[in-house]
Simulated scan of single mutants.
Amino acid sequence: MEKNKLVELTNEELQIEKKKLKKRKFLKALLIGILVGVLFMLGSAIVHYESPFGTIPIFLLLFIIFKIAKSPDKDKTLEETLKERNIN
């Protein structure tokens, strides 16, 4: 959310946004964990079968993982607004 929109929200609405933030962080971590597990399984299959074309899916998975991990966090502005208003 934009900083201007967050300033206009009431404390109750900010707490609702905070709950959504927790869910997003959890789902993001879960998705990254699942993809890392798939990455290790794929890596072990490539090593076992000595497939020369197996590196392509590994690079695709790494790209997806890094895109998810480094996605532009609009949550930082929400966290800053929560700290400004002392909402825990």
Rank of each mutant, 00 (worst) to 15 (best):
E84P: 01
A45R: 08
G54M: 04
R24N: 12
K70C: 01
L78N: 07
T77D: 15
F53C: 00
V38S: 09
L39V: 00
K76W: 01
F53E: 13
L39K: 01
T55V: 14
P52S: 09
T77M: 10
E13G: 01
F40M: 14
V47A: 15
L61V: 08
I32T: 08
I46F: 02
K5R: 13
A69P: 01
E50G: 01
L27N: 14
F63E: 06
A45N: 08
I46Q: 11
I64M: 13
F40Y: 09
F26H: 12
L42H: 05
I68R: 02
K18P: 01
T77N: 15
N86F: 02
E50V: 06
I34V: 14
I32Q: 09
S71H: 15
R85P: 02
V47S: 13
L35P: 05
L82N: 04
E13Q: 10
E12H: 09
K3I: 09
F40C: 05
E8H: 04
D75I: 05
T81D: 05
S71C: 13
K25Y: 07
V47F: 13
I87N: 05
L30E: 08
T55G: 13
E13T: 01
F63I: 10
F66M: 15
K22M: 07
E84C: 02
G37I: 07
K83V: 04
L27V: 05
K18A: 09
A45Q: 08
K70F: 14
L6A: 07
A45G: 04
E84F: 02
T77G: 08
Y49T: 03
I16S: 11
A29E: 15
E8L: 08
E17K: 11
L78M: 08
L9F: 07
P52E: 10
K74S: 08
A29R: 11
A45H: 07
N4L: 02
F59E: 03
K3S: 13
R85D: 05
L42S: 04
L62W: 04
V36D: 03
K19P: 03
S51K: 13
I46G: 01
A69K: 11
T55I: 15
L60S: 05
I65A: 04
S44W: 14
I34E: 12
R85W: 01
N11S: 06
I68Y: 00
I46R: 12
K20P: 00
L6I: 06
P72N: 12
T10H: 03
I64Y: 03
E17F: 03
A29M: 09
K70S: 08
Q15W: 04
L62K: 08
V7E: 14
N11Y: 05
T55A: 12
L62A: 11
E50F: 00
K74P: 03
R24K: 15
V38T: 11
K20I: 11
Q15F: 03
